[in-house]
Nucleic acid binder design. Structure first.
Lengths: 341, 341
DNA sequence: ATAGACTTTGTTAGCGATAACAATCAGGCG
DNA sequence: CGCCTGATTGTTATCGCTAACAAAGTCTAT
């Protein structure tokens, strides 16, 4: 790899090649209207001839805009965050923005804050924080002033815009579906403590039961992992009178199914199970899982919309109110639920 | 959000505040040794007092290093790419680098090339391309000269460094395990055409069968999705003499399990099934899946190592040979396989 | 005390682009 | 035909930082 140390062409080189000033080159590059067609052509020819690519770093320095958005997220290996980020990236690129990602292993106000600072230092024009833990929310309460920011599934703080899925509604959908099938009540396996999703789903579940005047069983604590669902499933199998379970997410539902199957409990004949997320695998669980679908793509797109709006306001003035965009989940009925007999 | 238009402090502000020159501030920031302890303290105090953060864009302009690495990947929603990227991001950040991601919907030489150009324009110091399709490999054959680059699961081209998992070996492990259990032969559900993983796994499977002098059945074409596995599973259930199936990945294995279960075929009693990847869910499939584990974290870390080495060479001179790092997969035995009776 | 060597600090000149302003060139109109 | 207006192009300054060099200041050895 003995690279010939020939440095990359810069604007001045193109200018010389085309016989114009570097400013004219800049104008061509930025689609400035006042450039004669033939000059434009000449410059464009020179650009291709030299293989010129503009240096966005230099551009960012003078415009004070990097056209890069920062994303801070917890465990990007999980389906939810991964899908959200995918949606964010696609939307951002369409809008001509780069995406710089920081994925956190542990999440608390300090780590999140540190990650944001890191991104700010790098000069991002705004940040999306996918940090659905309550504790992480505090990091959003005193952001660097003037930094456009959006939280996904964020706190209910009034200091930052939020895009989220209506967890409570999703949980309600799941619970009502089960009640409508004649189940006396519904057991619930929760997500980890401190997550906003956990709280929302818990609330929705409880609300649906209370609305129907049903007893509210003690929820079983989980942590999103299939293993937690498995443990919960074993407990449920050992209990009397359990006919319906609402798992906090699909992976835990998988664990529940596994445990029930091991104990010889048939789903949905003896116990109905509902999940949350609709991961691609759910449809092929044994049995195929009835679940709540979250449209992460839409969430990602909304994040970028909100963020770009904030950036625009910052540039051109205008007023910003903090927005709160709630995406409604939908319900997918498959074979893991059935009317009680 | 009526931001007070007070601009962020710059080095000169810190210099004034500390009563030194801006260069001294720069020295403190870059841990230059020749700064007296008390001046350093004074500068640091000024920095915290003003809440100064250095502008990495300006720094990048003059140093010609952005400390940002680009990652181009296909469908970051899939477990494999997502995990690899996670590993890359963690390793990069530890090394003081940012990661800018472009995730592609469709992948071919042009799209990949475009994505790389996009990243180069942004000034990345190097790129990792997670593009396991053969067609995408061509984009790596004439990269911008001098650009440090690493491919994950890349082509066998000699023009670029590659970090990959030994797919062939993994498939061999799976197939041999089944043969060792007394199965006469092993059926295979492949990944999508054109993927290197598909080819590697196919080769390993075939090699293991041939080594043992067994018949090689016609492989069933899949596309990584559970649905494809499901379809393949239905076909297999309808065939005679099938006792062992090696699915190209865990998701397809899930589909196979589902189809077999629907057809009343018991796993592993009647048919044994093996997957590939060891996604977190596999352990809780019905039955828990025997599979090949890939350590994506290690792959990510290796990518960064190789890339940083290339960047170092570019900066300080030295020789680079293109490296090829092969990570060995391991085998996880669970309950979806059993000796033939 | 003083040259020489090494620290420590300051000064100046870019990096490669855009912004702001100045200059030139056409065309239209009184 | 000259002046004004708008389109087109060029010139200069600047973004915030580091590199390179210059200038003090400190210390040791003679």
């Amino acid at each position: 790899m003995t690279t010939p140390k020939r440095r990359l062409p810069v604007m001045a080189d193109v200018a010389r090649e085309a016989g114009v000033s570097h400013q004219t080159v800049s104008r061509v590059l930025n689609d400035h209207p006042n450039v004669r067609a033939d000059t434009r052509a000449r410059v464009e020819a020179a650009i291709t001839r030299l293989g010129y690519r503009r240096n966005l770093v230099a551009r960012a320095l003078v415009t004070k805009r990097s056209r890069t958005l920062g994303v801070v997220s917890f465990d990007t290996t999980l389906y939810g965050p991964a899908s959200t980020i995918y949606g964010i990236e696609q939307a951002a690129r369409t809008a001509g923005y780069f995406v710089s990602i920081v994925s956190l292993k542990s999440i608390d106000a300090d780590t999140v804050r540190e990650a944001i600072d890191y991104l700010v230092e790098q000069g991002v024009d705004g940040v999306v924080v996918v940090a659905p833990q309550r504790s992480a929310g505090h990091a959003l309460e005193n952001l660097p002033p003037g930094l456009p920011a959006v939280a996904v599934e964020g706190t209910h703080s009034a200091d930052v815009s939020v895009v989220c899925i209506d967890q409570k509604e999703g949980a309600r959908l799941a619970t009502r579906h089960l009640l409508a099938q004649g189940h006396e009540t519904v057991w619930h396996v929760t997500g980890p403590h401190d997550w906003l999703e956990t709280e929302g789903r818990l609330e929705g579940w409880r609300a649906a039961l209370e609305e129907a005047g049903r007893p509210v069983p003690e929820p079983l604590a989980g942590d999103w992992s299939p293993r937690a669902g498995y443990e919960a499933g074993k407990s449920l199998a050992a209990m009397d009178g359990v006919t319906a379970v609402f798992a906090g997410n699909d992976q835990m539902a998988l664990g529940v199914l596994r445990a029930l199957s091991e104990k010889g409990v048939r789903v949905p004949d003896q116990i109905s199970v509902v999940g949350f997320d609709d991961i691609p695998e759910s449809e092929f669980f044994s049995p195929p899982l009835t679940t709540v679908r979250q449209d992460f793509d839409v969430v990602g797109r909304h994040c970028i919309e909100v963020l770009l709006r904030q950036i625009d306001v910052q540039l051109n003035g205008g007023s910003t109110a903090y927005e709160r965009l709630v995406v409604r989940p939908s319900f997918v009925v498959r074979s893991s639920t059935a009317p009680v007999r």
